[in-house]
Design a protein around this nucleic acid. Structure first.
Lengths: 215, 215
DNA sequence: CAACGATGTTACCGATCGGTAACTTGTTGG
DNA sequence: CCAACAAGTTACCGATCGGTAACATCGTTG
């Protein structure tokens, strides 16, 4: 119950491709970071302490603070990586259907459902963080807000590409279905929740926003 | 910045109608409880301590523990009241259109949007709690799960009443839109978020699930 | 007035939290 | 072989947390 990957993220590790980090001086750091990501996703940010992270990574608190300036810095890095992984998943999912915007949208919801069937899935990491980070206008809040706005913009673009009459309206509806799937997945187990109805709703909504051709 | 009501709940206080409580031995208790509900909703459950609740209510921790067995007991009562208020809001909203299931559904989303425009709205109290309560299979988790399942069942029933061919599928789609609205409201300010597109999507989905009549 | 119950006040407890200092171990490489 | 550095270890700090004990105050009621 430890080495399985995060639920909501696509896949590929960012091995080495992350800007100009001092190279391989960070074996322990990487171990701690991966452990922290798993624990944050599973038990929430408030629910995991620095001691627990270091211990679960087979290290200790002092080694943790040699690699991270503070817990907040770690959390910010966690959120940023979640977003990077999310967009990687999004891009590879969409790339399977170039020049077919409608299939791209459907593929996104198909892939979301597939991930939701994993028992390690606990919805959207960034969105869950939004429910925890309530206080001030700090960096964490801005991170989550910017992410959600990017999702919205992308859906608007895809709705426009599919030829919707009111692209923003269709994109917003798609976002409600997407986030509704993530949100309900927190409560409904495995593949039995309302998220199973998302793809059918997506198809209906796209059809309704297309210029008349049926009939 | 204190006496305004909760954002997501309809209205009416449960003045006196709550089973066989020892009557009026609880002036302080009520004050503390109301304060706790506001703070829990605004800052999350983990983000509010017993000291802060008692102080904000003009009392102190010792008086708190004379009225509540523990913080967990208070949280459970908070969640139960949120659900009671939610169903009261739901019932009064729906009751305005008896014998018209379609208008009932639309009215729910209209009322949700109206509440979402309030600046005190932070989405669904029970749902937000689900993102915080991650650990065990305790009472809080069961409370939230039971609530969400009741919402789903009600939407299934309403979809059946409206005459949908696949009522469960339509009800699930409605639930995705509903919870998507709550979830996105955590991040998007006031009435500018994707939730504004919910009602139009609801109408499209209902139409699509009705036995053919257009054309 | 006396007595009682409800409330406020202060001090405290043990646990946990984020964060730091000082020292030791172990590996690597010139 | 020895210097250098990464990592583990232990102990500690102040703050905060949920929760409790003991005592002071106040208002009501008989």
């Amino acid at each position: 119950m430890s080495t399985d990957k995060l639920g909501i993220c696509g896949g590929n590790e960012d091995s080495g491709a992350c800007a100009s980090i001092p190279s391989h001086k960070s074996r322990v750091r990487d171990r701690i970071f991966e452990t922290a990501c798993e624990l944050f996703y599973r038990h929430g940010i408030h629910g995991v302490g620095v001691d627990a992270i270091a211990a679960e990574a087979g290290s200790n608190k002092m080694s943790f603070y040699r690699s991270f300036a503070s817990k907040d810095a770690l959390v910010a890095e966690y959120l940023r990586q979640q977003e990077r992984k999310y967009w990687a998943w999004w891009d590879t999912t969409v790339a399977r259907f170039p020049d077919n915007p409608r299939r791209q949208i459907e593929a996104l919801f198909e892939a979301q459902l597939e991930i939701a069937k994993s028992n390690t899935c606990r919805g959207c990491a960034l969105g869950n963080a939004a429910a925890e980070i309530t206080d001030d206008e700090d960096e964490l809040s801005r991170l989550v807000r910017a992410y959600k706005e990017r999702v919205r913009n992308r859906l608007h673009s895809m709705a426009a590409a599919v030829g919707a009459r009111d692209a923003d309206n269709l994109g917003d509806a798609l976002m409600l279905l997407l986030d509704g799937g993530y949100f309900t997945r927190l409560v409904f187990p495995l593949g039995s929740g309302p998220i199973c109805a998302a793809l059918a709703a997506v198809r209906v909504l796209i059809d309704a926003h297309l210029p008349r051709e049926p009939c």
